[in-house]
Every structure is written in C-alpha cells, then in structure tokens.
Amino acid sequence: MSVIVLDKDAAVSHLQRRPRVSLERGAIILVTALWVLGALMPILALFVISVLRAKGLSFDFSLTLQAYRDVLVDFRLEIILRTLRVVAVVTLIEFLLGYPFAIWLAKGIRSGLAKSIILVLLVVPFFLSPAARTIVWRSILGNDGLINNLLLSVGLVDTPVSWLLFSEFAVHLGLIGPYFPSMVWPIFISVSLIDDELIKASRDLGATGLQTLWYVVTPLAVPGIVAGFLFTAIPMLGDNVASTLLGGGRVALIAESFDDLIRAMNFTGAAALGAILVVAVIATALIIRWVLVHLDRNNGHRLKVMSS
C-alpha cells in the first residue's frame, strides 16, 4: 500500500521530468535486454548444450559430462595448452611493442597531421582479408621465400632455413601484425588522456624519463593496458587464420578444433570446448587484472575508482 502511495508522490513531483526519465529507463532496459539476448543467452546455451547427451543431430534431455570426456582427450589438452601459451606470448610481445608505440603516438608526436595519418594507417589492414594479408608471409618465410633467398645469396646458410615457415615461429609472427592495433588503440587513448602537466610536474620534481614512465604514466594508463590485453588476447584465442595458413598442420590451435568438431557434427563436444574456453578467458581476465592491481599498490585505487 505504502509503496503505491510513494510511487504516486514521485510521479507527481517529477511530472515535468517524467518523459525524459522514462525514456532513459526504457533505453537502459532495451540495451540490457539486447545484451542478455545477444551476448549472455548464447553463452548460457553453450553451457546447457555442453551437458546434454547427443542423439543424432538433436539432444537427449538428460544431463551428462560425456561431451567433456570426449573433448578433453590428450591431444586436445595439448592444443588448449599450446593455444594459451601462444596467445600469452604473442599478447606479451604486442604489449612490449605496442606500449612504447602508443606512448610515442600520444605524447611524442607534436604534429596533429602526422598523428592522424599514423592512426589511419593502423586501421588500414582491417580492410584487407585476414587470409590475404597472412598468406603474404608464405612468400617471405618459405624455402624459396624472400628471407631464405637473401640468406642463401649472402652465403650465411647453404640450405634454406626450414623452420621459418610452417612452424610455431611462423604462427607467432603471423599473429603479431593483425592484433597490434587492438593493443595500441586502448593504450593510446588512456595515455592521451594523461594531462601533460602531470608529466612536466614529474620531471620538475626530479624524475628521469623512466621514473616518470613507471610512477606516473603506467599507473594512469592501467585501464587502457587492461583493455589492450583483453582486446588482444580474447579474439586471438579464436584465430584460425594464422595457424591454418602458417602452421602447416603442425601447430594446431583451438580454433581449428571447433572447425573439426562442427564438421563432424559433434555439437555437444563443440559446446563443451566453447564452455572451457569461456571459463579460460574469464580466468585469464581475472588473472591479468589481479596482476596489474598488485603490480603497484597505488594502481588498485585507480582501478577501483575506474570500476566504481
């Protein structure tokens, strides 16, 4: 009863703002609904399907962990671990390359034009087909590719270096290019937002460039760095282009397993593998966050402020 009266009061006192409030509320509800439908439901469905029993093309509605048992065979465990390792290594390389680059882009370049040009160049590769830009590596790394020809003609080697192509090395190399912008963009944005005066103040108080980087720039760029790691690592987990084209069947990554399972119409298996991957991704995200938060006691406050 009292609830209804309260509602009436609120409605009367906010009479003039009512349309705006209901519009905002409507938008929030709509977005939430879309998010639940578009993002959460499929993931939930993934978990549900993964514990059902397959019956031909359809499912028998009884719970079982059979799909997990089928999927988690030795060679697939190996694939999962390899995928995690490759993604971790390449993401780290992206960070080591991307962080200085993002800082230079955000604070080092004076000319606005040069900055715009570089930012555009960063996105241009997205307009190329992933397969097209990856396959180029074959003509560079192959036995009669650019590098081997060069090495042979200089006389550094007698026979072509064979581990350049169809190897883990090649897969790593092939993954670096496509995911570089994903690392650079969020870091670039958060470094750009750091007030120049803070950097000047740090120098003025006696900090060297490296000290300013460690004590001022990095803590303030943490949100961007976290985003960079997530935007880089998560899509990379699902990448099948580099491993297919440059791995030569020797460096199977998890994305190929999905292709295989679905081709074999083992949907519960694919769902189980997907569920494992989702858990792995969330776990990785939490680990990255934990590491960054504990990297420096100060950073924690910042993150808390950002996420509250």
């Binding site: 005066e197 003025d204 303030l220 910042r302």
Partner: peptide, 28 residues
C-alpha cells in the same frame, strides 16, 4: 628539468590523481 634544484607550482596544481596527499608530497 630533473637536474635543476628548482620546483614549479603549476597553475592547475598538476597533482598526481592516483596518489594520496602524502604520496604526492613524498614523490620527489
């Protein structure tokens, strides 16, 4: 700048937002 024993108070103070008052003062 970091080797000159002079110090600036900036117009908008330029305090480090991720540090406490004490950490700001102790920075140098």
């Amino acid at each position: 700048a970091n080797e000159r024993n002079v110090s600036t108070v900036f117009q908008h103070f330029a305090l480090f937002p991720h540090m406490s008052v004490g950490e700001n003062v102790e920075y140098s």
